[in-house]
């Protein structure tokens, strides 16, 4: 039996309608509520910490004023002590991966059309060519992560099967979306797989290591540590 015919079998069609309809909403609800609950639970593990204020001491010397140019070169030179200087390649791929991972689905024309038909509103959309490029960047970075995991001893020694599964879960919606859009393999099958993998990823974000999406901001911006950013005022309370 050919695939398209298979998808029109009545019971299968009902299943497909469920995946395309209620299951989408369900995933978004689990994603949203999950994020809220998990964020709350994480915040509950932190506590406020007083910072001592000292009277200005004699050691306090104001910094020499530097020209803008000098400032810029100093900053550039001191990138060496950050992760950007130490692992530039990985940071670049990771940055591209994350930015594209988040913005592509939001500003994708196809998704916005769906939003518009359901709610009568939509975000601005990238051109199809842009979205295509961004998707390819996600896929390429995913490939870099995969190769790193397979080839670099320092990553391999930490790697578990779960890491591959999660990498696949993160990549799958992009891979299937790309294949569907370009009608590679069977479109109908691909689009179903695309919807399913997107739903799976959404549902997994609050309950897997993808939750670093929130953890990152809490632990780096709210918790006092050598490496924290901004003006954190809290500490862990374990």
């Amino acid at each position: 039996m050919n695939m398209t015919a298979f998808l029109t079998i009545p019971s299968i069609a009902v299943l497909l309608d469920f995946i395309r309809g209620p299951l989408v909403w369900l995933s978004f609800i689990i994603f949203g509520l999950g994020l809220i609950v998990q964020t709350f639970r994480l915040l509950n593990l932190t506590q406020k910490k007083e910072t001592r204020r000292l009277a200005p001491g004699k050691e306090f010397v104001p910094q020499a004023t530097l020209s803008k140019r000098e400032c810029f070169f100093r900053r550039l030179a001191f990138l060496k002590i950050t992760i950007i200087g130490q692992n530039a390649c990985m940071v670049m791929f990771s940055f591209l991966f994350h930015v594209c991972l988040v913005i592509t689905p939001i500003f994708l024309l196809g998704h916005n059309v769906l939003l518009d038909t359901s709610f009568g509103f939509s975000f601005i959309s990238f051109s199809e060519k842009t979205s295509d490029t961004l998707t390819l960047i996600v896929l390429m970075s995913g490939l870099v992560f995969l190769l790193r995991r397979l080839l670099l001893p320092r990553v391999r020694i930490l790697t578990t099967v779960y890491d591959f599964i999660l990498l696949f879960v993160a990549i799958a919606p992009f891979l299937t979306g790309y294949l569907a859009h370009h009608h590679i393999f069977n479109y109908n099958i691909m689009i179903i797989l695309h919807i399913l993998s997107g739903e799976l990823m959404l549902v997994m974000i609050p309950f897997s290591k993808f939750f670093h999406m929130v953890f990152f901001f809490i632990s780096r911006f709210m918790i006092i540590s050598e490496h924290s950013m901004g003006a954190p005022k809290r500490s862990w309370q374990f």
């Binding site: 990985m90 670099l152 320092r154 930490l158 578990t160 890491d163 290591k209 670093h212 953890f215």
Partner: peptide, 11 residues
């Protein structure tokens, strides 16, 4: 929390 959040990235 530590185990769950570690991305095994080696950074």
């Amino acid at each position: 929390l530590g185990l769950a959040m570690c991305a095994h990235c080696s950074l």
